[in-house]
């Protein structure tokens, strides 16, 4: 276990993980849920959070600390995390028989858990970035990262599909570029200042595997346990001792407008019989075009055929004019993804 001097100024990236039994067994007779710990692992969102943390720490040449709240059976998973080179701390939470009391209090209290996470991080210094899975370390509500951002006085950007460190030298200090989903496949791009708390979906990245040397060393690693305290001294001074000192304030959002697909108005079927109306609405008895094989054709012809079909059936006015994409926030290098 690495002991980190709180005064060191190397960037600190934290992955805050919800390690849980992904395969609990439900007794069909009683409804009782058994978590035996055999199915314990990282959800796709948490695996993505950890991978993002590792990548950003590499980009910043910083350290990674993983904090997880959970019962003792999550320790084998934390060993795998140690094998990836991260320092690890566990907040007892959930089913630990010996950790009742405060652990039980935290179970339904996102704010309390956020305070406990913030307190557990104090020995490591002030985090520059905390990445969570979008099902956060509480009971998966996703609300914990917001509380944590409040505790740390950090910016927040939640539910992201992409998160990268912005290339150095383009702005005054290190920032992050994040992407979030909008309607109809559009995404908005955010410039996120640090310190920040981000939560990510399980998309876009796959967690790397630990090298053999790391796995060998992790076998005997001691997993530190942080008391489930609810007091914190990170305070609300906006993370003044942060690595970058670029208190640029809030998340910057590029100008966006949502794309709304056109609604197609259909007259109500005129029949006194509700069954007939229902059949007419669902089109259950209407003859449909059989599947048409138009290939093999080039991509352009295929696109024309598809659009032609949509126009023929009233989903599009032809010839279609797609809406302009949202204007991205000004100085972003699109190659940096």
């Amino acid at each position: 276990m690495t002991t980190v001097d709180a005064t060191t100024r190397s960037p600190l990236v934290v992955a805050c993980l919800r390690i849980t039994d992904l395969h609990p067994e439900v007794d069909l007779l009683t409804g009782a849920v058994t978590r035996d710990g055999l199915g314990v692992g990282l959800s796709p969102a948490d695996a993505a959070a950890l991978e993002h943390a590792l990548r950003i720490a590499e980009a910043w040449t910083g350290r990674v600390v993983v904090v997880a709240a959970g019962p003792r059976y999550i320790v084998p998973v934390l060993r795998e995390v140690v094998a990836l080179g991260a320092a690890v701390v566990r907040i007892p939470y959930g089913d630990d028989a010996s950790d009742h009391g405060q652990a039980a209090e935290l179970a339904g209290d996102e704010h309390g858990l956020a305070r406990a996470v913030a307190a557990a991080l104090i020995p490591f210094g002030t985090p520059d970035l905390v990445v969570c899975g979008d099902h956060s370390v509480d009971r998966g509500t996703g609300a914990m990262p917001a509380f944590l951002a409040h505790e740390l006085g950090a910016a927040q950007a939640l539910g992201l599909v992409a998160l990268t460190a912005e290339r150095a030298g383009q702005t005054s200090g290190p920032t992050l570029i994040a992407e979030r989903r909008l309607d109809a496949g559009w995404r908005e791009r955010l410039r996120v200042p640090i310190p920040a708390v981000c939560s990510v979906e399980g998309a876009g990245v796959r967690l790397r595997r630990a090298p053999l040397s790391g796995a060998l060393a992790a076998g005997s690693a001691v997993i530190a346990s942080a008391p489930a305290t609810t007091t914190t001294t990170h305070g609300t001074d906006g993370g003044a001792d942060s690595w970058a000192d670029n208190q640029s304030g809030s998340v910057h959002i590029g100008a966006t407008r949502a794309f709304e697909p056109r609604t197609r108005v259909r007259p109500a079927p005129d029949s006194a019989d509700p069954r007939i109306r229902l059949l007419a609405l669902t089109g259950a008895l209407v003859a449909h075009d059989p599947p048409t094989v138009i290939g093999p054709v080039g991509a352009a012809e295929a696109a024309d055929a598809l659009i032609g079909f949509l126009v023929r059936h009233g989903y599009l006015d032809g010839p279609p004019t797609p809406p302009a994409p949202p204007t991205p926030p000004a100085p972003i290098d699109p190659g940096d993804r």
Binding site: H23, E25, D36, L38, G39, E80, R209
Partner: peptide
């Protein structure tokens, strides 16, 4: 399958 993946019998 790759290490850690595949079936896990409980």
């Amino acid at each position: 399958p790759d290490g850690g993946h595949g079936v896990v019998f409980h």
